[in-house]
Write a protein that binds this DNA or RNA. Structure first.
Length: 847
RNA sequence: GCCCGAGUGGCGGAAUGGUAGACGCAGCGGAUUCAAAAUCCGCCGCCGCAAGGCAUGUCGGUUCGAAUCCGACCUCGGGCACCA
C-alpha cells in the first residue's frame, strides 16, 4: 500500500474494536466514571451532517476521557415517537411502528461506519414497549406522589378534520390539510406540576457552572420570577355577580397613570357580557381564532372592545373604562391588566388608537415632557420624579417606588404583594396515536383510575388505520375496552398519549440500566449518573432541558434517582449547525427551483449548463436541497475525513459550512499524515533527547490538543495538529525522534480520526490499540522558551519589536526599548512621560 | 412583539485588555513531470512607488493600549410552551 486507503482500513479497525469490546461501558469501582451523551436522534431514516458533527464531538470527548483513564459510558438510542410517523402513515399508508423501526435500522447502518465509540449493547428506542412501559410506571408513581394533575387547556382545533393540530400544523391561522380556520378548543388534559418547582428550578441554575451562560439566562427568563402587586379594581356597577376586577402588575408605581383596564376575551366577565351583546361576542370569537402561541398573540395587531363598564381607581377613586383586549392572556396573572399608556408602548399604541387618556405617573428629573407617540420608560436604576403619588413618593428609582407602593397598598388592604412565575404547568396530553399511552382508565363508577403496574406496559395496538384524521385509538374496535383496575367493571382506556418531551426527559437515566424491569436500578444510577457532558443543539436550550431538570427532581421524589442526581447534566455544550450554500434557478413562472450540490459544478448545472444563483449558507434542509449525505462522504473519503472536517475550522458552538473543497483538504491532510508515518524508519537510530526543537513542538501540541478538547475548542486542537504535521514534515530530526513524534501524533489524532490513528500507531510499532494507550502528558519543562519577542508601541501604536531573554528584569527591558531606533526617532529628543512594560507581552512608550 | 446569541481578509476562523488575521480553504508564483494527477517550496487584509495610512457590522465612550469593556443602533440566527 503506497497510499492511505480508508475503505480497507476503517472496517478493519472497527472490527478490532468490536472484537475486543473496547467501548463496552463497565462499572469499574477502581476508576473514575465519565458519562458523555449526545442528544439522541429522531429516526427520520437518514443521518445528516448535523448528526455527524454532534456525535463526533461526543466521540472526541468519550475517546479522550477513556484515554485519560476514565470508565466511560457513551450510549446511543432513538427518540422514536412523534408526528412524522403518523404523517408517513397518512401519506404513504405506512404503519407508524414498522416505518419507525425500518428508519432506525437504516440510520444505524449509516451511523456504524463512522466509527463512534458507542456501547451499542445499551441501545433502545423510546417506542420499545420495554421503555415506554417503564415510563408508564413513572407516570403512575408521579401521579400518586401528587406531581401530576388534570385541568383544562386550550388546543388548536381543526373544525373540518375534527382533530387537534400542533402549532406547526397551523399555517396563517388555518389547518395545514383542511385549510379551515383553526379554533381554540378547551379540553381536559394531564399536566406535570412543574410550576410547583419554579423557584427551585430557578435557584439551582446558579449551581450549573458548566452550562453556557446564555442557556441559564434563557431558562431564567423563561421561568420568569417577578414581584408585583395584585390590586382589586371595584366595578362601579357590579355585573353578572362580579364586583371587582383583580389586576396583577409588576409596575404598580405607574398606577397614577392608569387610564383603562383591559380584560382577556376569556375572562369570566367577558364571557358573561358577550351573551347579551352580539357585537362583543363576534369580537371575542375573532380573538379566539388567533392561535395558541405567544408569538401569534404578541405580534397580532392590538385591538380592543369597549365593554361600557367602568371601575374605580382603588387609590384615587376616578373612573376607568373596561375594555376587552386581544393581547391579554387568561393564562397569565389574573387575565386582566390596567393600562398605563404614558409608560408602556403597547398601552400607548392602544390608547392612541381608541382615544383613551394618557397620564404621566412620573417624569425624568429636570423635564416634564408630554408623551407623544413614544412611551416614557425610565431605566430601573435612575431616580424619576413621581406625579401626585398616592404612596407619598416624590423622587425614587422605579424599583424603590415599586416596593413602597406594594407596601402602601398592603397597609391599606387594597392589594396584595405577590411573587409570580411565568412558567406554566407542562401539559403532557396529546390526542395522537404514536406516543406513549397514558396509563389511566376511565370508569363510570370509580372515575379516573391509574392502571395497575402489573398490567404495564399498556401497549399500543398495531392494527390501526389512518384513512381519516384524528386519533386511531379513539376508533379502534377493542383497544379502549378494559376492566377498571379498581372495581373490575368494564371501563375505557384513556386514548391520549404523552408529549414526546416526556420520552426524552429521562432516557439518559435509562441508559444506565436499559434492560431493567424497573425504570432505573439503584446501583447503576448511583455509579453512572449524572451525565458528565451533555451535547446537543441550542434549540433545546429551554424546553427539553427544563423538562429533564424537572423530571430528575420528580424521579428523585418517587425514588428512581438518588438525591445527588437532582441536576442530571453536570456540563452542557450546545453546538452549532452544519450549513451549506443553496443553489437556485427559477422556472418559467419565476418560482424558485433548488438543486443538490452534486448537480452543480462551477456555478452551473451539470446537465444544462444553466447558471445557478448561490444563496449564502443556510441550515441544511431537504426543501432547499442544500444537503450533503454523510453516506456519500464516507464512501468517497472515509469516516475520518468527515470527522476531521466537522471538527476543524469553525468553533463547535458556531455553525460550520460544509464545502467540497474543505472536505477534500481534510482528506489530503489525512493522506499526508499517513505518508509521514510511512516514511519514518520504524527501526532507525536516534532518540528524542537529541532533537529538542521537534520535541518542544510535540509537547506544545500535546498541551494545545488537551486544552482544545477540554475547552470544547476542537478547531484549535485541529489547528495545532496541522502545525505539528508541518513541523514533522520540515524537521531534519533523527528517525528515532520522528518515530516518537508520529506515535504521539497518532495518539493526539485518535479522538478525531480513530481509524487512521490505529493504522499509524500499528505501523510505528505501537503496542496494542491506540484506543487503549494512555493519553500523553505535556512536560512543563519543554513548554518554556528561553527568549521572548516583545512588540514596542509608541503611544499605543506598534513601531518596532525587540527579542529579549525571558527573565530580563523590567528596568533592563525598558532601557533596551528606549534605545530602540524607532522609539528614539519618535521621541524626537523628548523624555517619555511613562513607559508601560507588561512582562512577556508588550512595551508601550507614552510621550 | 418578547427572551437569547452572533457579526474579524475572497471564505471558515485565531487572538477574550497587550504585535489583528494562528491554522485551513481559495488564489498567485515556482519545483517535479513528456504531460497531467498527486506531492513539495514560496507569496497572500486594503490603499500607496514609498514613507506611511486605513482596517474586526455602524456610531459614540472608557483606557497608555479595545476585535475584546460600556452605551445606542443595524443585520442575521435560535426559542416563544402541541416540530423534534
Amino acid at each position: 500500500m503506497s497510499r492511505y486507503d480508508p475503505a480497507t482500513t476503517e472496517p478493519k479497525w472497527q472490527e478490532a474494536w468490536d472484537k475486543a469490546g473496547t467501548f463496552l461501558a463497565r462499572r469499574d469501582p477502581a476508576k473514575p466514571k465519565y458519562y458523555v451523551l449526545e442528544m439522541f436522534p429522531y429516526p427520520s431514516g437518514r443521518i445528516h451532517m448535523g448528526h455527524v458533527r454532534n456525535y463526533t464531538m461526543g466521540d472526541v470527548v468519550a475517546r479522550y476521557k477513556r484515554s485519560c483513564g476514565f470508565s466511560v459510558l457513551h450510549p446511543m438510542g432513538w427518540d422514536a415517537f412523534g408526528m412524522p410517523a403518523e404523517n408517513a402513515a397518512m401519506e404513504k399508508g405506512a404503519n407508524p411502528r414498522d416505518w419507525t423501526y425500518q428508519n432506525i435500522a437504516d440510520m444505524k447502518q449509516q451511523m456504524k461506519p463512522l466509527g463512534f465509540s458507542l456501547d451499542w449493547t445499551r441501545e433502545f428506542a423510546t417506542c420499545d414497549p420495554e421503555y415506554y412501559g417503564q415510563q408508564q410506571a413513572l407516570f403512575i408513581d408521579m401521579l400518586k406522589a401528587g406531581l401530576i394533575t388534570r385541568k383544562n387547556a386550550v388546543v388548536n382545533w381543526d373544525p373540518v378534520d375534527m382533530t387537534v393540530l400542533a402549532n406547526e400544523q397551523v399555517i396563517d391561522g388555518k389547518g395545514w390539510r383542511s385549510g379551515a380556520v383553526v379554533e381554540r378548543k378547551e379540553l381536559t388534559q394531564w399536566f406535570f406540576r412543574i410550576s410547583d418547582f419554579a423557584d427551585e428550578l430557578l435557584e439551582a441554575l446558579d449551581g450549573l457552572k458548566d452550562w453556557p451562560e446564555k442557556v441559564r439566562l434563557m431558562q431564567s427568563n423563561w421561568i420568569g420570577k417577578s414581584r408585583g402587586l395584585e390590586i382589586d379594581f371595584p366595578l362601579t356597577a357590579p355585573t353578572a355577580g362580579i364586583d371587582t376586577i383583580p389586576c396583577y402588575s409588576t409596575r404598580p408605581d405607574t398606577m397614577h397613570g392608569a387610564s383603562f383596564v383591559a380584560i382577556s376575551f376569556d375572562h369570566p366577565l367577558a364571557k358573561a357580557l358577550e351573551a347579551g351583546n352580539p357585537e362583543m361576542a363576534a369580537f371575542n370569537a375573532e380573538c379566539r381564532r388567533m392561535g395558541t402561541t405567544e408569538e401569534a398573540l404578541e405580534t397580532a395587531e392590538k385591538r380592543g372592545f369597549d365593554t361600557g363598564l367602568t371601575v374605580r381607581h382603588p387609590a384615587e377613586g376616578r373612573e376607568l373604562p373596561v375594555w376587552i383586549g386581544n393581547f391579554v392572556l387568561m393564562d397569565y396573572g389574573t387575565g386582566a391588566v390596567f393600562g398605563c399608556p404614558a409608560h408602556d408602548q403597547r398601552d400607548l399604541d392602544f390608547a392612541r388608537k381608541y382615544d383613551l387618556p394618557v397620564r404621566n405617573a412620573f417624569h425624568m428629573p429636570g423635564s416634564s415632557e408630554e408623551v407623544g407617540t413614544e412611551a416614557l420608560v425610565p431605566p430601573k436604576t435612575e431616580p424619576v420624579v413621581y406625579v401626585d403619588h398616592f404612596a407619598g413618593i416624590t423622587e425614587a428609582t422605579s424599583q424603590e417606588a415599586i416596593d413602597r407602593t406594594i407596601d402602601w397598598f398592603e397597609e391599606k388592604g387594597l392589594g396584595r404583594g405577590q411573587t409570580r412565575f411565568r412558567l406554566r404547568d407542562w401539559g403532557l396530553s396529546r390526542q395522537r396515536y404514536w406516543g406513549c399511552p397514558i396509563p389511566v382508565v376511565h370508569c363510570d363508577t370509580c372515575g379516573v383510575v391509574p392502571e395497575k403496574k402489573e398490567n404495564l406496559p399498556v401497549e399500543l395496538p398495531h392494527d390501526v388505520s389512518f384513512d381519516r384524521p384524528g386519533n386511531p385509538l379513539d376508533r379502534h374496535p377493542t383497544w379502549r375496552d378494559c376492566a377498571c383496575p379498581a372495581c373490575g367493571k368494564p371501563a375505557r382506556r384513556e386514548t391520549d398519549t404523552m408529549d414526546t418531551f416526556v420520552d426524552s426527559s429521562w432516557y439518559f437515566a435509562r441508559f444506565t440500566a436499559p434492560r431493567a424491569t424497573t425504570p432505573t436500578v439503584g446501583e447503576e444510577v448511583d455509579y453512572w449518573m449524572n451525565v458528565d457532558q451533555y451535547i446537543g443543539g441550542i434549540e433545546h436550550a429551554i424546553l427539553h432541558l427544563l423538562y429533564s431538570r424537572f423530571f430528575a427532581r420528580a424521579m428523585q421524589i418517587t425514588g428512581h434517582l438518588p438525591k445527588t442526581a437532582i441536576e442530571p447534566f453536570n456540563a452542557l455544550f450546545t453546538q452549532g449547525m452544519v450549513t451549506h450554500e443553496i443553489y437556485m434557478t427559477r422556472d418559467e413562472k419565476g418560482r424558485a427551483v433548488y438543486h443538490l450540490p452534486e448537480e452543480v459544478e462551477d456555478g452551473k448545472l451539470k446537465t444544462t449548463g444553466e447558471a445557478v444563483t448561490i444563496v449564502p449558507s443556510a441550515k441544511m434542509s431537504k426543501s432547499k436541497k442544500n444537503v450533503v449525505d454523510p453516506v456519500n462522504i464516507v464512501e468517497s473519503f472515509g469516516a475520518d475525513t468527515a470527522r476531521w472536517f466537522v471538527m476543524s475550522d469553525s468553533p463547535p458552538e458556531r455553525d460550520v459550512e460544509w464545502t467540497a473543497s474543505g472536505a477534500e483538504a481534510a482528506f489530503k491532510h489525512l493522506g499526508r499524515v499517513w505518508r509521514l508515518a510511512a516514511e519514518v524508519d520504524a527501526r532507525g537510530p536516534g532518540d528524542a533527547t537529541q532533537d529538542e526543537a521537534l520535541m518542544k513542538a510535540m509537547h506544545r501540541t500535546i498541551a494545545e490538543v488537551r486544552d482544545g478538547i477540554e475547552g470544547f475548542a476542537f478547531n484549535k486542537a485541529v489547528a495545532a495538529l496541522y502545525a505539528f504535521a508541518n513541523a514533522v514534515q520540515r524537521t531534519d530530526a533523527s528517525a528515532g525522534a520522528k518515530r516518537q513524534a508520529m506515535r504521539t501524533m497518532a495518539q493526539l489524532m485518535s479522538p478525531m480520526t480513530p481509524h487512521l490513528a490505529e493504522e499509524i500507531w500499528h505501523m510505528l510499532g505501537g503496542v496494542g490499540l491506540v484506543a487503549d494507550a494512555p493519553w500523553p502528558k505535556a512536560d512543563p519543562a519543554m513548554l518554556v522558551e528561553d527568549s521572548v519577542t516583545l512588540p514596542i508601541q509608541f503611544n499605543g501604536k506598534r513601531r518596532s519589536e525587540i527579542t529579549v531573554p525571558k527573565d530580563l528584569p523590567r528596568e533592563e527591558v525598558e532601557k533596551r526599548a528606549l534605545a530602540d531606533d524607532a522609539v528614539v526617532r519618535a521621541l524626537e529628543g523628548r523624555a517619555p512621560k511613562k513607559v508601560i512594560v507588561v512582562p512577556g507581552r508588550i512595551v508601550n512608550v507614552v510621550a
